[in-house]
Design a protein around this nucleic acid. Structure first.
Ligand SMILES: [Mn+2]
Ligand SMILES: [Mn+2]
Ligand SMILES: [Zn+2]
Ligand SMILES: [Zn+2]
Lengths: 138, 138
DNA sequence: AGACAGTTTATAATGATTCTAAACTAGTGT
DNA sequence: ACACTAGTTTAGAATCATTATAAACTGTCT
């Protein structure tokens, strides 16, 4: 597993000890080509179904919160009953499929430049997020 | 209180009995010029501080959920620890002030037209929401 | 190896929301 | 006016996602 060393470096460089739990979660989250959108519950289920050593739910929460704090994950708020996390930490927009209850990344070219004309004195814009809710036709 | 009758009609017309609790909440929510953005907790505090008869928290939840279901309120998701409701039920976008933790409506003219170029086969767009997070300068 | 801070874990606590079921009430019919 | 009924309110219990606790464990440094 030569790519473990990448995650070990990443974890060490941000002051997180490379424990086997964190490395396993790193591999699951970051060792893939495409963006991964997930809920804690979904992540926990995947981890349970891998028949390696069990990771406690508290650790899953701790790890996701730690990765979020370090900027390796973004939290995406969609519906009051689920919190999604996103391995794509760049500024980007989303489709939300209300039937599959799934997020899909949008390219900037799919959305076009958004130019906010209103200015609030003393305030600066930190982020602009577009959420496009889609559902099945008919 | 001549304007009570407006709310009584509104409630009756949507199959909700005009109880004194619902009328009081209607007046608080809808008898105002500007959009009102609130959390359940904030609404409940306002109701507690009016020294008329107490409304139980369960009723506040029931009423807000009923009004949301009838389309008199929209739920706005901003942060995982709070759910906001909005008396402005038209399609519109928001500023979110991360310091005051407050929503501000954006006019359509403040956000140009958003034209989503990507099409998902078999899916239709239900809504497009822009959230602009702002914070204090410096 | 030994020391120690950081981490994991089972379990408890928290807190927002929903549920329950008994008491209350608005609307309807007589 | 009175009673009937379905809808509503309410206090308190239940639920469930998340966070806190504290004991056991482990990665890192010397
Ligand atoms: Mn809700
Ligand atoms: Mn969170
Ligand atoms: Zn994404
Ligand atoms: Zn609004």
């Amino acid at each position: 597993m030569s790519n473990n060393s990448i995650f070990i470096k990443k974890l060490r460089s941000s002051g997180l000890r490379p424990t086997k739990q964190r490395i396993k979660i790193c591999k699951l989250l970051f060792d893939r080509k495409n963006t991964f959108h997930f809920t804690i519950n979904y992540l926990n289920n995947i981890l349970k179904n891998k028949h390696s050593e069990k990771i406690s739910l508290a650790t899953v929460y701790n790890t996701v919160n730690a990765f979020k704090k370090k900027g390796y994950l973004k939290e995406i708020l969609i519906s009051s009953d689920k919190s999604y996390y996103d391995t794509n930490i760049s500024k980007h927009h989303h489709f939300y499929d209300e039937n599959k209850r799934e997020l899909i990344d949008l390219d900037d070219k799919d959305v076009g430049k958004i130019n906010i004309k209103k200015v609030l004195p003393g305030k600066k814009i930190n982020s602009i997020e577009v959420l496009v809710k889609v559902a099945n036709n008919n």
